[in-house]
Computed example of a mutant assay.
Amino acid sequence: MNATSALFYLFSAVLLVSAFLVITSRSTVHAALYLVLTFFNAACIWMLLKAEFLSITLVLVYVGAVMVLFLFVVMMLDINTDSLRAGFWSHFPLAALVGVLIAIEVALVMKAGFNLPEAKPMAPEVLAMGNTKALGVVLYTEYLYPLQVAAVLLLVGMIAAIALTLRKRKDAKGQDPSQQVRVRPADRVRLVKLAPTIEAPSVPKTPEGGQA
């Protein structure tokens, strides 16, 4: 066993253990930190497979952005997870059985891809342009249609999430830009002449005919 194989088994073991701790940890913050450890080990495995771009993208996007945002939300909301975890261990055997069946099905589907007699050598021009550029060329040429389909699905999912979480509050105040555009000067200021509600007091007159 060489050093690459030893590192692969090490990162894989830590990844499996940390992934298991994500779903069994009592603290939500600890579960998020275990998930960060899982992402780091997955990035290390991709680095061993010479997929540097995917490895760095996993660390920057998921660890540097998504998980940090998730930790901020968890710490600010202070969600009580005791009620959410009620009955976890009673349903764990069934959930573990379903997870094992899914893993076996995925392994059977992907088994054909690992039975290659030898790896297909990369073209010299691809090796010269680098890993990241080669991935971009293949992604936007051979896999352009699946990429567009995935982009549309993500857009639909984002719009659906916004539509499901958008709620109109009765106490919320807002402005209607269309009414602001159609406003007229006469609607802004209106001069109204009102009759006095209290009569002005009369001024008494002096004997000379003038006013006091």
Rank of each mutant, 00 (worst) to 15 (best):
A43L: 01
L37H: 10
E105D: 08
L7W: 08
D176Y: 05
V152L: 15
V73K: 10
N80M: 02
A86F: 12
M67S: 04
H91N: 10
A160T: 11
A42L: 15
F114Y: 15
H91P: 01
P185Q: 14
A195T: 13
K50A: 12
W89H: 07
M129L: 10
I104Y: 00
P207D: 01
V66W: 04
G210E: 01
L71C: 06
S27K: 00
S90M: 12
R190Y: 07
A151D: 03
P121F: 06
V66L: 09
A186P: 03
A43E: 00
V22Y: 05
V17M: 13
L48R: 02
M1W: 14
V192D: 09
H91S: 05
L191K: 09
L144C: 02
L116C: 10
M1N: 01
G99M: 11
L144I: 06
A112V: 07
M67R: 03
P207K: 13
A119Y: 13
S90V: 08
A96D: 02
N2E: 06
Q148D: 03
M76F: 07
F88V: 11
L77C: 02
F39T: 05
A128K: 07
M122Y: 14
S55L: 00
E208V: 01
L166D: 04
L97C: 12
E118T: 12
K111V: 07
L101K: 11
L166S: 14
I23C: 04
K50E: 13
A32F: 10
E118F: 13
Q175A: 05
A186K: 12
V36I: 15
M129C: 03
A32H: 05
V98G: 03
E105L: 07
M158A: 14
V22L: 03
A212T: 09
P207E: 00
L191M: 14
L153V: 09
P124L: 02
L35D: 00
A161N: 08
G136V: 03
M110E: 10
L97H: 09
M1R: 08
R182F: 06
D82G: 04
S83F: 11
